[in-house]
Design a protein around this nucleic acid. Structure first.
Length: 574
RNA sequence: GCGCCCGUAGCUCAACUGGAUAGAGCAUUUGAUUUCGGCUCAAAAGGUUAAAGGUUCGAAUCCUUUCGGGCGCACCA
């Protein structure tokens, strides 16, 4: 059992006992959320816990007094070298070396599929969902990679996840797309400037039109052609996504979901439940009186749920708003019986979050579990200057271009290494460097070093004869260095990091963890340069070499698994 | 005008969701290694966590106010 689980169990048993002794229901202790951490400082031992401070209130004891009680019980534990109680009430644990050596063995003995002890849920994870009206840009990549990484992580801990792409293949933006293609069909020789600004600018659609229609003369773009155009764009998007290893299991078409029948059904339900009505929309606060044209819409009673004004569902011309089609889509998801829906949206959709949740909760009797993760903006930097992006002129950097410059690994790392709600300054220059400043290089280099050790042992030190499973004559008591203990501690917390990353939907915890592990491993490596006895491979000392190589196996395993979860390559050589 | 998010070292970011003296990388200064793998390692310096108040054993984290930045608040996406 890894130390987190082990120590938690021990502490919980003790706590229950103390609760009973104090005539309290021992189950009260179940809700206590105490922590077990790697101690932030050496003086604080190997591990530390705040258990006494968290539990003291219910027990009406001072934290120190409670800590003493807990420590008294723990003293019987043979693996513990020393226990200390510090100031406000922390308990610091000092374990025997044997304990950590055993932990390494435990870690490598774990089965391939780790049991995270999480209740498996059926999850619909929606990401990307870029409109099929143009190419992907770097902002799309952020949502795509966050979504895709979350997909891996949620699957890893045991959830059943469907990665889904919602195709906005209906509505206004598609009309605009078709108009743009029509323009290119009939205006082949005109210069860009003459393009009306109601159309999508840029060369992409111009070239696409050429590619699809070649020299065919088309007068009317019927449904068949519309479909072909959208399919072509969608295929380009999928190809771009593949470049950064992003995939979906399910593609859902807006057009199919928002059939007349479904619309009528939803309209009827909304009216019956008095959630919607036909009426005039209020003038928004940021619009001048003179610019405001009063129109009659089909409106959601958003005010009832604390919104400033009621929100349009169906426009005067009968077409759907984005909001309405989102309701249809989510009702469709709900009918597919997911335990949880997670959406990755750009922060510009922020305004919809509350009202979508409100309408879904009102429409459905059962609680709707919808989690919406918003991603902030991405700024591209080159030579310390921001690369200007102008969607209006059509001159924006496509994701494709960024991939061809820095590669998929760099993009993937960068996009998940920051909390979603913070903007990213993506400095492309960093990823051309082959040094510590480039975090991807740094982590991959640690992995390559592990592989190098393993390779040397296999080829030049055959007498060592070791692999992950062959642990004959392995003497882990040779691992006595502080650096080795630190690595073991980190490695054994790996699965907790993944678990927390899944619980909070935060992949950046994994990238940060891998960076830390790479750091302490490089450190371990380099102390061998100062003191030959501390090298991993030592002449004339097979036992130590074997034990240290075994540790390297563990580091390799973690780096490999971590990088694979984030879909970043693990190079054997660099 | 209203709502939400953000503000942490000169720069780019962490901080296990309320824990100990707020940590990393870059840049700066100093040293080690160039022999398992070369852009690797160590040390120093750098902070009133935007500001002020409050909550409690304990606050970057929670509450209130102010300042600054971003986004949203018809339609369009």
């Amino acid at each position: 059992m890894l130390y987190q689980e082990y120590l938690r169990n021990e502490l919980e048993i003790i706590l229950k006992k103390i609760f009973s002794e104090n005539c309290l229901n021992k189950n009260l202790s179940n809700n206590l959320n105490f922590s077990i951490d790697i101690s932030p400082r050496k003086e604080f031992g190997d591990l530390s816990s705040n258990i006494a401070m968290v539990a003291c209130k219910i027990l009406k004891l001072s934290p120190i007094r409670l800590a003493e009680k807990i420590v008294n019980q723990l003293n019987k534990n043979k693996m513990i070298l020393k226990l200390e109680i510090v100031k406000p009430g922390f308990i610091n644990f000092f374990f025997k070396s044997l304990f950590w050596q055993n932990q390494l063995q435990e870690f490598l003995d774990l089965p391939e599929k780790f049991d995270y002890k999480i209740k498996s849920r059926k999850i619909c994870l929606e990401y990307v969902s870029a409109n099929p009206t143009g190419q992907m840009h770097i902002g799309h990549a952020r949502g795509a990679i966050l979504g895709d990484s979350l997909f891996s992580i949620l699957c890893e801990v045991g959830h059943k996840v469907t990665g889904e792409y919602y195709i906005n293949d209906a509505g206004e933006q598609i009309n605009k797309l078709i108009e743009t293609v029509k323009f290119h069909l009939t205006n082949t020789r005109r210069v860009e400037d003459e393009m009306p600004d109601t159309l999508y600018p840029g060369d992409y659609l111009k070239n696409l039109t050429k590619k699809i229609f070649k020299k065919e003369k088309i007068n009317v773009l019927n449904e068949k052609y519309k479909k072909i155009i959208i399919e072509n764009i969608l295929n380009d998007i999928k190809a771009d996504l593949e470049l950064i290893n992003v995939f979906h299991q399910s593609f859902v078409s807006e057009k199919e979901i928002s059939s007349l029948q479904n619309i009528e059904k939803l309209k009827k339900k909304l009216l019956e439940m008095e959630l919607a009505y036909y009426g005039f929309q209020e003038k928004p606060k940021n619009i001048e009186e003179k610019d405001w044209i009063k129109k009659k819409h089909f409106l959601f009673r958003s005010k009832k749920f604390g919104d400033d004004s009621d929100r349009a569902l169906i426009k005067p011309n009968g077409s759907l708003t984005y909001f309405m089609s989102d309701i249809l889509y989510h009702q469709n998801k709900i009918s597919r019986k997911f335990d949880l829906m997670i959406n990755i949206w750009g922060v510009d959709h922020f305004g919809y979050v509350k009202r979508l949740k409100n309408v879904l909760n009102a429409l459905n009797k059962e609680n709707v579990n919808l989690e919406i993760k918003l991603t902030s903006l991405v700024n591209l930097l080159k030579k310390n200057k921001q690369i200007k992006m102008s969607k209006r002129s059509g001159n924006f950097i496509t994701m494709n271009e960024v991939v061809s410059e820095v590669g998929s690994d760099a993009i993937r790392y960068m996009m998940i290494s920051r909390n979603a709600d913070k903007k990213i300054d993506f400095d492309l220059d960093i990823f051309f460097q082959k040094n510590k400043e480039n975090p991807v290089f740094y982590i991959q280099y640690a992995y390559a070093r592990c592989m190098s050790i393993i390779q040397i042992v296999k080829e030049k030190r055959k007498e060592i004869s070791i692999d992950e499973k062959n642990t004959d004559s392995l003497k882990l008591n040779k691992l006595m260095l502080e650096e080795e203990k630190l690595i073991i501690k980190h490695i054994c917390s790996f699965y907790d990091i993944i678990k927390n990353s899944a619980i909070h939907y935060e992949p950046h915890r994994i990238s940060a963890y891998l960076y830390d592990l790479a750091k302490i491993f490089h450190n371990y490596w380099s102390i061998g340069n100062i003191d030959a006895k501390k090298r991993i491979l030592i002449e004339n000392d097979d036992d130590t070499t074997r034990a240290r190589t075994y540790l390297v196996f563990a580091v390799k395993k973690v780096l490999n698994k971590g990088l694979s979860l984030l879909k970043i390559k693990c190079p054997n050589k660099m």
